[in-house]
Amino acid sequence: MIKRFTVFLILLALAAIFAQLLFDYVPDSSLNQTGRYYAENAADEVGAANIVTAIIVSYRGLDTLGEVTVLFLTAAIIGLVLSRDRSQQQTAPEAVNRPGPGELLVTGSYLLAPLILLFGAYIFINGHLTPGGGFQGGAILASAILLLLLTRPVKHFSHRLITLLESVSGLVFVIVGVLGIILAGGFLDNRILPTGQLGELLSAGTIPIIYSFIGLKVGAEFSSMLIRLAETEDN
């Protein structure tokens, strides 16, 4: 009781802080210096039509590197934590009799899964042209895997493949970044490949390549996490 009251009081103070921020907030009427720079120059310098992608992959590529690493770490840690447990659990596997998934469910998921995968791939390949990008596409890829996990729980996934995919994608990202230092203006400068025509698929330098790899990587990592979490279920 006291605890709730204390929490309430503290959150009240926090609400006061937020209210203050809210009241002092004056929305912009035009772009500030950073926004304006991006609006004016991103299309020419980077060659990507989706300015947000340009920022993520190129200008603030270091943040993206960190983000990618976050997922890599999380997947590695979950693998570390849950795989140790799995080996402890294998001593007594109990086969629980569960009714299998119905034919409607299985066929439906077989129909949907490739479509979802395709959609996800479309999102990250066209990251520089339309809304979306590697992370979004990767999440969609993982949702396909999730669908399969939910409908066919006995299906076996290769952790080896997923780990390989993760590492290769990560390495490619880092190597492209280093190439940016050697061949172009700085780390993760995307202009080591020609920027091409704005709006074309093969434009914006290395962005499509990087984003595709990121998409694969993110998809692989999310899938890996989901698979591990699913494997923890008592069989």
Partner: peptide, 30 residues
């Protein structure tokens, strides 16, 4: 903030919202 036929590059500055917070939020979500 996407440049296409609807929002040509020349008008970008006048008709685009600030793209930076969107990039930040992507990272934050992940």
């Amino acid at each position: 903030p996407i440049i296409n036929d609807n929002l040509p590059a020349a008008e970008a500055t006048a008709r685009m919202i600030d793209p930076l917070p969107q990039a930040l939020v992507l990272t934050a979500i992940v």
